[in-house]
């Protein structure tokens, strides 16, 4: 009997666009492809945790709708103003958003779930705010790791895990394929989302976002190129192409996002299946 090759799923950062992972997951199930481990970064960590918790695709879609609403940005406008006129003092634990809504939504869904309670090995990538290092989390409460990985710099306050202040995994590696490589995956299905660029700059925030997108996309391109070259097994990139920009709270577009995820996944299926049958 030939041994089954280890298949890992890596879901990169991309906010609401990460809901495309629901479409990818549906296609993998339809094709009866069994995934052995998952890695998630930022928005991707939510869907990774949902899959590893055996949520149905309907449940994942509902979670997307309640999560990606503008309510998670509570306090942003006021705090931005206060930080400009100096009434809000900013330090390493600050964020422009009051994170109570985000925390309670995620806690309602994932509660006290531990990594060890999940149905398959799952890891989350975050970034150490003070040292800039990439941090891989795979123990303790899934919520804590997820919240850390989701901490968009300056917007959400960092999250402390084991004495370290952690922020968005995207700041060190938006598509952490190497975590799957180190864990011995032989086939890696990697879903990533380049950030959209702007064509107009009407505020300081717009300029900041653009500069941030330039960094993240360049990190994404170089880490991907490196992993692809360094890894001896196969990496299948699944990069959905959306019709136009998908803004952060465009919940009406979720079904569309899922469909594009499924489409991008279907494109890779012949290659993945060919590889699986040849082994």
């Amino acid at each position: 009997m030939s041994e089954k090759k280890q298949i890992a799923l890596v879901i990169g950062s991309g906010g609401i666009k990460c809901a495309a992972a629901i479409g990818l997951w549906r296609v993998l199930q339809d094709e009866n492809i069994q995934v052995d481990s998952i890695v998630g970064c930022s928005g991707g960590s939510i869907y990774g945790a949902a899959i590893a918790s055996r949520f149905s695709t309907d449940e994942m879609q509902n979670l997307s709708k309640i999560l990606w609403t503008s309510e998670i940005m509570q306090g942003y406008t006021e705090n931005l103003k206060a930080s400009k006129d100096g009434t809000l003092r900013f330090n390493e634990r600050s964020g422009l958003v009051n994170d109570a809504v985000l925390n309670s939504t995620l806690q309602k869904v994932f509660g006290e779930t531990k990594f060890s309670d999940l149905h398959m090995p799952f890891k989350i990538v975050a970034t150490d705010l003070l040292s800039g290092d990439k941090v891989t989390l795979s123990e303790g409460n899934v919520f804590d790791a997820m919240r850390a990985s989701l901490a968009i710099p300056i917007i959400f306050p960092p999250w402390e895990v084991d004495g370290r202040l952690l922020i968005d995994g995207a700041a060190s590696d938006p598509l952490p394929i190497d975590v799957a490589i180190q864990d011995g995956a032989e086939i890696i299905i990697a879903m990533g989302f380049p950030l959209d660029y702007r064509s107009r700059f009407r505020s300081m925030t717009a300029v900041q976002e653009q500069l941030n997108s330039i960094y993240m996309n360049n990190i994404l391109t170089s880490t991907y190129a490196f992993y692809n070259l360094a890894h001896h097994a196969e990496i299948f990139p699944v990069i959905p192409e959306f019709d136009g920009a998908v803004s952060m709270f465009d919940v009406a577009k979720i079904p569309d996002v899922i469909e594009h995820g499924a489409q991008a996944a279907r494109k890779q299926m012949p290659h993945i299946k060919r590889l699986l049958s040849s082994l």
Binding site: S83, R89, F90, N91, E92, S94, T127, L129, L130, G132, K134, P153, I154, A171, S172, D173, Q208, N212, Y215, M216, N218, I219, S222, T223, A225, F226, L229, A230
Partner: peptide, 25 residues
């Protein structure tokens, strides 16, 4: 100690990670 310093910190975090990634490649 300020929003601007946080911005500078983020700029260092991302550019150092970009440096490492490009160099490795």
């Amino acid at each position: 100690t300020s929003l601007m310093r946080y911005n500078y910190q983020m700029s260092s975090v991302t550019s150092n990670n970009l440096l490492k990634a490009n160099f490795a490649f």
